[in-house]
Design a protein around this nucleic acid. Structure first.
Lengths: 179, 179
DNA sequence: TACTATATTTAGTTATAACTAAACACACAA
DNA sequence: TTGTGTGTTTAGTTATAACTAAATATAGTA
């Protein structure tokens, strides 16, 4: 039976990660689940997670799968045991890269593509209109924005493709930027 | 009277930015407002923005101020004219830095601080408990997480403090990472 | 001072997404 | 097969946040 005080400290931590989760527009439950797993020395089953949080099995089931898709937790199955066990990924840099990789398929990149589509629309239009002040202005603006997104996209690809990424990687970038 | 086709293209663009906005957990209206201003050669009044979007004045009023706080749009007042006019910031790198700067005061950093607080709680606890397996494990985990956050925090500060940031800055980082 | 054009705030509504409780599906065991 | 322990899905509920319409505040003008 664990000490009450540790449980209190854990509860604070759980709440903290829940808020962070919420800040990023994710369900609070996801932060809570990750916090529980992150502090647990051994992998936990769905029901164990339910016990440690204020959520029901259904909510945990869906949230924990989302976490797994993002690479924040991993599923583990034990031989001769029907339960699934989950544990937290503790390499956060790996998580970042995993999320950036998944970004390709996402709703986000489809939205980004729409900027490219806008540019094509503008450029494919009949010539007589093209001279108008508004058209020229809009076209230049959209070109600028696309260039920005493309640049960021490059960066994301490079990060996602890194063999390794760690504290040191960030330090190097910081040193570069400070120059 | 502008051509219908330009308006159609604009409408698509507006919808695209609305989706991006939504993806980041922000109101769709913010994306729409920014899109309208971004494509407009001249600054627009509240009422003009209302005309170009599907939202009411109240909604635009609050959203446009949020955008201004984030540095994505700017307010302009003309002498002898009571209206406020808004125009889009077109230097997206400036926007990034402006957002990172604002981050300090935010709910987010308060949540991050809670990780530090958890660590202090763990370390300030009575010694007799400290040896327990769970405590040691939790303490190490929280130390790791705090170190990760501190590292990111450094990066954010450096970026926010840059005198200039542009495509070239990103290129340099990409080159560094590719090595 | 009162009037007018504007922006902001507010109270109430609507839309959305998280969550619950319970039914369901599945795999394994007897 | 049936029964049992598990994870998943679903229909309905609740909580939250965006939005609307209208009232209010504000700043400039006569």
């Amino acid at each position: 039976m664990p000490s009450t005080e540790l449980n209190e400290i854990k509860a604070n931590f759980i709440q903290g990660l829940s808020q962070i989760s919420q800040f990023w527009g994710l369900p609070k439950s996801m932060g809570a689940i990750f916090a529980v797993l992150y502090l647990s020395p051994n992998a936990l089953s769905l029901d164990e997670i339910v016990e440690e949080t204020t959520f029901t099995k259904g909510a945990i089931s869906t949230s924990v799968r989302t976490l797994a898709r993002m690479g924040l937790v991993h599923r583990q199955t034990k031989l001769g045991d029907r339960k699934d066990y989950y544990f937290a990924e503790d390499d956060f840099y790996k998580v970042i890269r995993s999320i950036l990789k998944g970004r390709e398929n996402s709703e986000f990149s489809r939205a980004i593509d729409s900027v490219g589509a806008t540019l094509e629309n503008l450029q494919a239009s009949p010539n007589q209109e093209r001279g108008a002040e508004d058209w020229v202005f809009a076209e230049n603006r959209v070109i600028e924005m696309k260039s920005f997104f493309d640049n960021l996209d490059n960066l994301v690809h490079v990060i996602a493709a890194l063999e390794t990424m760690n504290q040191n990687t960030v330090q190097k970038v910081i040193r570069l930027l400070k120059k």
